[in-house]
């Protein structure tokens, strides 16, 4: 059995370095939001893309983890009156994060290649 280059790359990177589904959702939300990607907007976008309610703690924990891994960068911006003057933290996907997303997409496409999921059996 031969392992082609893309899968081999994913294998060498290691399973622990592959992005989880939630991490991908957060990174994609930041990409979609562009310049407006701050915590609250990311939370909204993730909820919209996953079509379910998501706890704020889960999103901010993931943002912290992604930042620690160097996949995203952040900057502080002036707060508004409605926030009680509290600062906003805006996020942007770093080059490494873009690469990780591209890797995840390729790996997923490779995994699904030639697979047909059987129709769900009604019980």
């Amino acid at each position: 059995m031969s392992i082609d280059t893309e899968c081999q790359h994913a294998y060498i990177v290691g399973m622990s370095d592959l992005l989880g589904t939630f991490e991908q959702a957060v990174l994609l939300a930041i990409l979609r939001l562009g310049d407006g990607a701050y915590g609250r907007a990311v939370l909204h976008q993730v909820q919209e893309s996953l079509t379910k309610s998501v706890a704020a703690g889960a999103v901010y924990t993931t943002l912290d983890r992604l930042e620690q891994r160097g996949l995203i960068d952040s900057r502080l911006a002036k707060g508004t009156a409605i926030r009680g003057g509290r600062a906003r933290r805006y996020y942007v996907v770093a080059a490494i994060g873009n690469r990780a997303l591209a890797d995840a997409q390729k790996t997923l496409a490779k995994m699904w290649q030639g697979v047909k999921v059987p129709a769900a059996v009604k019980s």
């Binding site: 701050y38 609250r40 508004t80 509290r86 600062a87 906003r88």
Partner: peptide
């Protein structure tokens, strides 16, 4: 590190 930004985000969401 998160005290101001996260509390601000949740307050904004709550009010708006």
């Amino acid at each position: 590190r998160d005290r101001e930004t996260v509390a601000g985000d949740l307050r904004e969401e709550y009010v708006e």
